[in-house]
C-alpha cells in the first residue's frame, strides 16, 4: 500500500496545510518568495504534518490548532533542509535544483533563517508552554545531532551507541515531537501524548535505519544520488558499522573511500552488501518498528490509531 493511500482521508486537511504553507512563506521580496516556493514545491511526503493531524485526534481536536502545529513543524523541517543542502553541497533535491544551486549559499542561509522565523511566528499562536518547551528542546537536539554527524565523519572507531544517539537526534526526535505536539496541542491525556512520543521516536529510528540501508540497496534513480554516497562522505551508518567489525573489511573500505572513484564506490558498496550488514540493520529496524507498534497499544482503538499503525508498517518496508 502507498503512504498517500493510507492517509487519503486526511486529504482535505493536508490541502489546507499546503495552502497555509504557501501563504506563510509569502514574501514581498521576490527572491525569498521564489526560493521558499521552490522548497515547497520539492514537496516530500509531509509525514510530519500527517502525524500531527493524527495525534491531534487523540485530544479535543481543533482543526486550526493542529494546522498551525503541522505547518510550523513542516517549516522547521524545510528550514533545516535548505541549510543541509549547503552543508552537503547538494545540487538537487527531489529532482529540483536546491536553493544554494539556483542562487548561492548566502541566499540559502537567509531563506532558511527566514523560514525558521516564520515557523516560530506561527507556533507562537499555540499558548502551551509545554509545547514550546518540547519543540525547542527537539530543535536543539536535532542540531546537536547534525553537529555530531559532522564531527563523527570518518570516525571508524565509533560505537553502535554513538550511531544510535546520532540518528535519534538527527531524525527520530522531530518525528516523535510531531506526534507528541499534535497530542499536547489538543490537550490529549498525558499517557496518550507519551505513547505517541514513543511511537514517533521508534518509528523515526526505524525510518533512519531504513534510509541508511537504502544508501546501499536502492538504485541511483530511486535515491536521487549515487548508491554509497553516504559512505563516501564518511557517514558511518549501521550496515557499515556491522561490516567493519571485520578488520579486513574495515581496511578495504578505508582504502576505497580514500580513492573515491566510481569503481571504488561500487566495490565499497559490495563489501557492505556481502558483509551481512544489511540483514543486521534490517533486523534492528524491525525491532524499532515493533516497539513503535507496541507503543500504539497505549492508545484507544480508533481509525487514527489504525492509520498510524499502517504508516509505520509501510515506512518499515519502504524500498526507496
Amino acid at each position: 500500500m502507498k503512504l498517500r493511500t493510507i492517509y487519503a482521508h486526511l486529504d482535505n486537511e493536508l490541502k489546507r496545510i499546503e495552502e497555509s504553507l504557501e501563504k506563510t512563506v509569502h514574501s514581498e521580496q521576490p527572491t525569498l518568495q521564489q526560493a521558499s516556493t521552490q522548497l515547497l514545491n520539492a514537496g516530500g511526503k509531509r509525514i510530519r504534518p500527517v502525524l500531527v493531524l493524527l495525534a491531534g485526534r487523540f485530544g479535543q481536536y481543533d482543526k486550526d490548532v493542529t494546522k498551525k502545529v503541522a505547518v510550523s513543524l513542516e517549516l522547521i523541517h524545510m528550514a533545516s533542509l535548505v541549510h543541509d543542502d549547503v552543508i552537503d553541497d547538494a545540487e538537487l533535491r527531489r529532482g529540483e535544483k536546491t536553493v544554494k544551486t539556483k542562487w548561492d549559499n548566502r541566499v540559502a542561509m537567509y531563506t532558511g533563517d527566514y523560514i525558521f522565523a516564520k515557523a516560530l511566528d506561527i507556533m507562537a499562536d499555540i499558548p502551551s508552554i509545554s509545547a514550546h518547551s518540547r519543540l525547542s528542546l527537539t530543535i536543539l537536539e536535532v542540531c546537536k545531532g547534525e553537529i555530531e554527524q559532522i564531527k563523527e565523519k570518518f570516525d571508524w572507531e565509533q560505537s553502535l551507541r554513538t550511531y544510535l544517539r546520532r540518528i535519534r537526534r538527527k531524525t527520530a526526535l522531530l518525528i516523535a515531537a510531531s506526534c507528541q505536539l499534535g497530542a499536547i496541542s489538543t490537550n490529549a491525556p498525558k499517557p496518550y501524548s507519551e505513547a505517541l512520543y514513543r511511537f514517533g521516536y521508534n518509528m523515526g529510528m526505524a525510518y533512519q535505519i531504513t534510509d541508511d540501508i537504502l544508501d546501499f540497496t536502492a538504485s541511483e534513480k530511486q535515491l536521487g544520488k549515487p548508491a554509497g554516497s553516504d559512505l563516501m562522505q564518511g557517514n558511518i551508518t549501521l550496515p557499515v558499522l556491522y561490516a567493519i567489525q571485520n578488520n579486513e573489511c574495515k581496511e578495504k573500505l578505508q582504502q576505497l573511500i580514500g580513492l573515491g572513484n566510481e569503481q571504488a564506490v561500487a566495490d565499497a558498496v559490495n563489501i557492505v552488501l556481502e558483509s551481512g550488514g544489511i540483514a543486521y540493520a534490517e533486523e534492528m529496524s524491525r525491532t524499532y518498528l515493533q516497539k513503535a507498534l507496541f507503543a500504539l497499544e497505549g492508545l484507544p482503538v480508533s481509525k487514527q490509531r489504525k492509520t498510524l499503525e499502517d504508516i509505520a508498517k509501510v515506512i518499515g518496508k519502504r524500498k526507496f
Binding site: 542561509m109 533563517d113 525558521f116 516564520k118 516560530l120 499558548p127 514550546h132 530543535i139 536543539l140 542540531c143
Partner: peptide, 28 residues
C-alpha cells in the same frame, strides 16, 4: 552553518523557559 542554527535553537529554548510566548513572536 550548524553553529548559527544551534544559536537560533538556543534562543527559542531559553525563551520557552520564560513562558513569555508573545516575546518569541517579537523576536521571530
Amino acid at each position: 552553518v550548524l553553529a548559527g542554527d544551534y544559536y537560533s535553537g538556543l534562543y527559542y529554548r531559553l525563551l520557552s523557559f520564560t513562558g513569555d510566548i508573545p516575546f518569541i513572536r517579537v523576536v521571530a
